[in-house]
Design a protein around this nucleic acid. Structure first.
Lengths: 204, 204
DNA sequence: ACGTGACTGTACCGTACGGTACAGTGCCGC
DNA sequence: GCGGCACTGTACCGTACGGTACAGTCACGT
């Protein structure tokens, strides 16, 4: 996956990276369809020919942006010990902080995905894959907790991951719509409570 | 609000209604920005001049569609006794059924709102208002349950409504992305469990 | 030195789309 | 029967946008 047959060799990589970063920022702010190629190129100081040298279409750029945003999110996730209660809490706090700092513009992966999942099959698949990777990362952490005895044997990591991610995305959505962090905090608090409810029962 | 200075008088109302319905369906399926006026007009068998007789811009049509979709959702909500446990469950089941029947295309209000909340202030306000009305409807039902003693005195209806709506929206999102009802069912089950946890405690 | 291939600049094309202009048509009260 | 107004049909405009063509330039291996 990371091999990707890196189709360039030099500062070209830098250029391509710059285009992706600018596109990610713009698409995050305005939406994919509302972001024109020309906007991206102007802000990254590139020309059309550069763009079409590195990408074969706007869709390909969008796919790269999706991957980029997913890596950002997974990267942040990786900075926390999400297989501990404290770690989960810290991660949730970081999500809240990020949403507030970025001006309540929503989840970089989620908002992108919603727009893209109305597209063609290929794009739908890419989006579904991105979310699966996020879910799997979470499920693995929960499985580790379960193995350690921090979660009840009856808990199902995959299910917990789904519910957690749903709460996160729902929280982002409400927060974005209301331009207010409170509903997202509510959603994440509820998600945390629900996770804690899956701790081992002492009925032995 | 419902007075709206009904700007027409006759079958014109029918025409306008038809345009809104077609637009709602198309925008639900493809997204707002991906739906052209010409598509809407073709399918509703209207001309440009009709359209601009009834609406002053595409944005105004979008606002009408948002209102239409909100009314649909609130209308469906109203068909259930959401101030009872059985009613809530039935409503959740209906949401799941609807999402499946419509081909996993997401929440008619939610997906619209996400796209629109990247627009201008006016549109953002309309979206926030729509969601507030949905939240309020839920919060009122929960308040009624609380008054009846079905919810603990310490529960806060507004908070419960936020968390519930977040779970619903998050569930819709995951379900739409994966083209699968399971994650939404997981999210709604979790939301229901969390609501049940707010039943009166017998510690007294 | 020179040729090859990665990269860059500029100009252009086709089309889709939101919006406008304008000339009607048919219903309704008087 | 006629004036006015709600409504309808058609043709058109300006622009934005994704994508292409093509002519370079620059780095580097030989």
């Amino acid at each position: 996956m990371t091999s990707e047959t890196g189709p360039k060799t030099a500062r070209g990589r830098e250029r391509k990276g710059a285009i992706i970063e600018v596109a990610a920022a713009l698409m995050y702010e305005r939406g994919v369809r509302a972001t024109g190629l020309e906007d991206v190129l102007a802000e990254s100081r590139s020309g059309k020919s550069q763009f079409y040298h590195y990408f074969s279409s706007k869709d390909e750029l969008v796919a790269a942006v999706l991957e980029y945003q997913l890596m950002t999110v997974l990267g942040e996730l990786g900075e926390f010990r999400v297989d501990t209660w404290r770690g989960i809490r810290s991660w949730f706090d970081a999500l809240l902080e990020g949403q507030e700092e970025r001006g309540f513009k929503g989840c970089p992966v989620g908002s992108l995905s919603i727009e893209l999942s109305a597209g063609d099959r290929l794009m739908q698949g890419r989006v579904a894959d991105a979310f699966s990777r996020w879910e799997t990362a979470l499920a693995r952490a929960f499985a580790a907790m379960q193995a350690r005895g921090a979660l009840d044997d009856s808990a199902r990591p995959q299910i917990l991951a789904e519910a957690t991610l749903a709460a996160i995305q729902g929280g982002y959505l409400l927060s974005t719509i209301h331009r207010d962090i409170a509903p997202m905090r509510t959603a994440l608090t509820a998600a945390f409570t629900e996770l804690r409810a899956a701790r081992p029962q002492k009925t032995s």
